[in-house]
Amino acid sequence: MPNLIIFIISVFFLQCKGEDNSDQESAEAKRIRQDLLIEKYVGNCAEKFSYRYQMSEWQHCLDEGLKEDSTVAYLWQQKAMPYFKARKYEVGMKYLDKAVLYNERSWLSYRAFIKCVFAKTYREAIKDFEKCIQNEGNTYVMDHTYQFHIALCNLQLNEFEKAETIFKKDIEEQEQEWGEAHYIDLFYYGISKYEQGKWEEAIFEFDKSLKQYTQFSDAKYYKAICLGRLNRTEEFKSLMIEAKTDKNEGYSINEDNSIYETYPYQIIW
Rank of each mutant, 00 (worst) to 15 (best):
P2V: 13
P2N: 12
N3I: 13
I5G: 01
I9R: 04
F13C: 14
L14S: 13
Q15F: 13
Q15H: 10
C16Q: 13
K17I: 08
K17C: 13
K17D: 09
K17T: 11
G18C: 09
G18V: 12
D20T: 12
N21R: 15
D23K: 15
Q24H: 13
E25H: 11
E28M: 10
I32M: 08
R33D: 04
Q34F: 07
I38Q: 02
E39T: 09
Y41V: 01
Y41S: 00
G43S: 11
N44S: 04
A46S: 08
E47M: 14
K48W: 08
S50Q: 10
Y53N: 15
S56H: 02
W58Q: 06
W58A: 03
H60Q: 11
E64L: 11
L66F: 01
K67A: 00
K67M: 00
W76N: 01
Q77E: 02
Q78N: 01
K79Y: 00
K79W: 00
A80I: 00
F84I: 00
R87I: 00
M93L: 08
M93R: 05
K98P: 01
Y102M: 10
N103H: 09
E104A: 08
R105V: 06
R105K: 15
S106H: 05
W107H: 14
Y110H: 10
Y110V: 12
A112N: 05
A112H: 04
V117H: 11
F118T: 06
A119R: 09
K120W: 04
T121Q: 14
T121W: 06
A125C: 05
A125S: 09
A125T: 06
F129P: 05
K131C: 07
Q134K: 15
E136Y: 15
E136P: 09
T139G: 06
T145K: 07
Y146C: 06
H149L: 04
A151V: 09
C153W: 05
L155W: 07
N158D: 04
E161V: 10
K162I: 13
A163C: 07
I166Q: 04
F167C: 08
K169D: 14
K169F: 08
K169W: 09
D170G: 06
I171R: 05
I171P: 02
Q174L: 14
E175P: 12
Q176R: 15
E177Q: 15
G179V: 07
A181K: 06
A181Q: 10
I184C: 00
Y188D: 01
Y188Q: 03
Y189Q: 02
Y194G: 00
Y194H: 01
Q196I: 02
G197M: 02
I203T: 00
I203S: 00
F204H: 03
S209N: 07
S209V: 10
L210T: 03
L210V: 07
K211I: 08
Q212W: 09
Q215E: 14
Q215H: 13
Q215K: 15
S217N: 12
D218Q: 13
A219R: 13
K220P: 14
Y222A: 14
Y222D: 11
K223D: 09
I225R: 15
C226P: 14
L227K: 15
T233M: 13
T233C: 04
K237Y: 12
K237P: 03
S238M: 10
L239H: 03
M240R: 15
A243F: 06
K244D: 09
T245N: 11
T245P: 10
G250C: 05
Y251N: 08
N254A: 10
D256P: 08
N257L: 11
S258V: 06
S258F: 05
S258E: 04
P264D: 08
I268C: 01
W269K: 11
